[in-house]
Design a protein around this nucleic acid. Structure first.
Lengths: 235, 235
DNA sequence: TAATAAAGTTAGATTAATCTAATAAATAAA
DNA sequence: TTTATTTATTAGATTAATCTAACTTTATTA
């Protein structure tokens, strides 16, 4: 049985790995994500290594073991299922679900997770467009572009957000955007990459920073087939 | 913000108070209920007194303050709402809900509780027949008899159980009993109070110990009016 | 390549919740 | 009303998760 804290460390390690591939994770990086001091993270890493959930050499990069990864994916599964529950069944808004799911993800009951999964009809994506691992730990991987990568004149569909912060999500809603919305890139400034986009017939200007936090799939992409342009396949 | 542990102490104090009125609670008694040593309970009581959640003199009986009581009722509200959710929506069985609700009751989000309450259509009783406090902390009090108090030849309705343990609940199901079932007391031995009861046309023998753990309302009782016999009114 | 900066580790301290063992107060029994 | 028993309290120790401050190793750069 893992503690609340141990689960959070595994989840953080997994998220960092998702973000930058197989290079392993640094102590400081992990500490930053978890909002603790490096010394604290270091202590916990020793404990996790002892339990064979992570592996690393002293002063070297940290990697999850197979069992650490499985445990981390379980936490993410629970988090995303609860987010889906809050959004679909309890009428929470997009930007409110994360905070509550941070607590709910630590409830220990395999039966609860399975029954929740069934109750929600085995959803594959959460309200932010992120894939929900199934009971086996498998998830639909989306190779996504960000809106910033889409060429002028092209249209695409928003599938997820990179930044899950409440303030960003509220801004997204304000611009009239949401998961599965079609976006047409009308124009783009050379100087600062300021974009004009069209959503549901309405034009808006969005900054590069904003565009980099919106994940899209371009309209040439087909589920199960690779994209003719850059990677934005849904497997 | 109260810790998980502090919440459990308040809940335990409240439950003991419910069970034996206004005489106050002892340290050992509390420690037993929480499965900790008296020394531990004593330390925590000091802390709760500091926070003005309980009140007592050294070596004296412990009582919840108004704010301690409110906080405790909130925990019970959450516990019973979650039990109802698990039972009604996720298809958990009667005897499984308690354990999981013990964890869920500590999730901190007023919005979540209110939305869950609404989702369940403001239930007044949980799957064990215990009243669920509303947002204001008010609950339907049932003045109940136990099955052991019902006279031979009388019929009554099961409204709750005293013992919430999984083993007892499974036994109750085996006898063919459940919340809101009509029970006719067919006969009763003078010697050991062994009862023959009839539920849905089927006769069973039940011991005194069993009968004392089944709460009933006799069929003369009317909601909102006092019972002509002993107390078993539903307010 | 030597100096500097960044990243990682260790040592020692703190807080919350728990324990055991010893002691003190209140209650029950002889 | 003493004595014995039960109940409550205190003192000192432990564990998990955290911190600060000092130190070591690795990486960067001048």
């Amino acid at each position: 049985m893992l503690s609340y804290t141990e689960e959070n460390y595994l989840k953080a390690l997994l998220k960092i790995s998702f973000a930058h591939g197989d290079l392993g994770v640094g102590t400081n990086e992990l500490a930053t994500v978890l909002a603790v001091k490096p010394a604290t993270a270091n202590d916990m890493l020793k404990k996790l290594k002892e339990k064979e959930l992570v592996d690393y050499e002293k002063y070297g990069k940290i990697r999850l073991t197979a069992s650490g990864k499985k445990r981390g994916i379980d936490v993410i599964r629970k988090h995303r299922l609860w987010e889906t529950f809050l959004y679909k069944k309890l009428d929470f808004s997009w930007d409110e679900v994360h905070e509550v799911a941070e607590q709910l993800e630590h409830i220990q009951s395999e039966k609860l997770v399975d029954k929740l999964d069934k109750f929600l009809d085995y959803p594959e994506f959460d309200p932010h467009g992120d894939p929900i691992p199934n009971k086996k730990g498998e998830l639909k991987v989306q190779f996504k572009k960000t809106l910033a990568d889409v060429a002028v004149g092209s249209s695409c569909k928003m599938v997820a957000v990179k930044d899950n912060s409440s303030s960003f999500l509220q801004y997204v809603v304000k611009v009239g955007l949401g998961i599965n919305n079609e976006i047409l890139v009308v124009s783009k400034q050379d100087y600062d990459a300021l974009m004009v986009i069209k959503v549901n017939g309405v034009k808006s200007s969005v900054s590069q920073k904003f565009a980099e936090n919106i994940f899209v799939v371009c309209n040439n992409c087909v589920v199960g087939k690779s994209c003719p342009k850059t990677k934005c396949e849904i497997k």
